[in-house]
Structures are given as C-alpha cells and as structure tokens.
C-alpha cells in the first residue's frame, strides 16, 4: 500500500424496501499523495456515494478504506468525526458556509472541533483568509460575499486543519465560468503545493485540471484515463 487513499473492493448497498440498491460494486482506487484526481460519471452512477465514503461521512457495506495508512472502514461515529476534523477538507458545490458566522469564524469551525485555542485558531484563520485573498473581508458574513468569494472561504476552511485529502463536490457548479476558473486555478495552486485533491464533477473542463480521471458507471469504475499532464 503506497497511496494516501487506498480503497479496495468497496461495496455500498442501500436497502430500498425489499430490494437492494448497489450504489458501489467493488470499487478499488489507490490515490498517491499529491495527486489531483477527478471522478466523473452519469447521474446515479455512484459519485456522491464514493465521495461520502472517502470523506468518512459513511462506511462501506464491505471492502476496506485506508486513509494515510489507517483503516477507517470500521470506525465508530466519534472516531469518524475525529478523522473528518483532522484529515479531511470538504469543498461543496453550494459552499455550505454557516450563515450567522463571519468569514473568519467559518474558517475557524474545524479548528474549534479540534480543540484549538482561541488565539491560535484566530491567527490561523486570518492567515488562511489571506491565502485565498479575502483578508479584507474577514468580518463579513457569507450573505455579503459573492459566490466566488464564498467558495474561497470554503476552501480556506477546508485547508484549516491541514488535511491529508481535499474533497470537492462540483466546486464550480454554482459559479459562472470566469469565477469558476479562478477557483480551479486556486485548486491548481494547492496541488502544486502538494495537496491531494479529489473532485467530483460533470464538467470535462473541470476534470481536465486533474492529472487522473476516473469514470464511474453503475457503481463500477468504467474508465480511467490521464488528464492534464503535470
């Protein structure tokens, strides 16, 4: 095992009444550290299910998942929460900022659940706001920001706990193409700094920022190809 993410023979089965729905059917992926990988596929092909598993929001029905060498496929709820707070950075399509918190407070949320001290977390959040180019917006609320700015806050928040992997679900889905490419450029920069990024997308242009593209169909890996060459 060499990858930072190692999933092998992962099945995810949902019980719908009398029927079993297999969202994932024996998926195996290995992601080396620092790789930028895109997951594509038609609607219902299992992309979200896979991303939720990778993000430790869910557990596979069978198969194993090693994250940074640690088997996380059978952990309890509190342990999974801990993994999420310490090893995973989420970026969502609809930003998912907490409305009543300011920019800097939103960035601080993961640190708060990790038990950082007030001063350290404020310092780190302020620094991250600067990294994503929002140092003059730290005390604004999400509603006072444009979509692109909100997504930048979300990226800063995903970076806060210095995660092993960053998971992005259609990160540009709600943005116009110009703002979207800004966000993609930011992700490119992060990868250049050594971040491992896994993104789910419909959009070929988004996928083409990744070095490696996996296409899911019916819960199985149907195709795997190289994207942009590093």
């Amino acid at each position: 095992m060499t990858g930072i993410v190692e999933i092998s023979q992962v099945w995810k089965t949902y019980r719908m009444g009398a029927e079993d729905v297999h969202a994932l059917r024996g998926v195996s992926v290995s992601v080396p550290e620092g790789q930028y990988i895109a997951i594509m596929g038609a609607s219902g092909s299992g992309k979200s299910t896979l991303l939720n598993l990778l993000g430790c929001l869910d557990r596979p029905t069978s198969g194993t998942y090693h994250l940074g060498g640690e088997d996380v496929s059978r952990l309890g709820d509190d342990q999974l929460s801990f993994i999420r707070s310490s090893k995973i950075g989420f970026i969502f399509q609809s930003y998912n900022l907490i409305q009543q918190l300011t920019v800097v407070e939103n960035i601080e949320v993961p640190l708060y659940y990790q038990g950082w001290s007030e001063r350290d977390s404020l310092e780190r959040a302020t620094a991250l706001a600067e990294v994503v180019g929002l140092s003059n917006r730290v005390n604004h609320r999400p509603t006072e920001l444009s979509g692109g700015q909100q997504q930048r806050v979300a990226i800063a928040r995903a970076l806060a706990n210095d995660p092993l992997i960053m998971l992005a679900d259609e990160p540009t889905g709600n943005l116009d193409s110009h703002t979207g490419s800004d966000i993609l450029r930011l992700l490119d920069q992060l990868q250049a700094q050594g971040k491992t990024i896994i993104t789910v997308t419909h959009d070929e242009r988004v996928a083409n920022h990744a070095e490696r593209i996996i296409r899911l169909a019916d819960g199985e890996i149907a195709e795997e190809r190289a994207g942009r060459q590093p």
């Binding site: 929001l57 509190d78 929460s81 801990f82 707070s85 998912n96 907490i98 659940y113 706990n161």
Partner: peptide, 16 residues
Amino acid sequence: TREIGIRRALGAKKRH
C-alpha cells in the same frame, strides 16, 4: 439541519 450537516462534516462529534 443544513448547519448541523456542515458542522458534522467538519468534524463535530454528536456531543458537540
């Protein structure tokens, strides 16, 4: 509900 989901995704335990 959404906020709860966000907090959980960002590492909040049930007790939080």
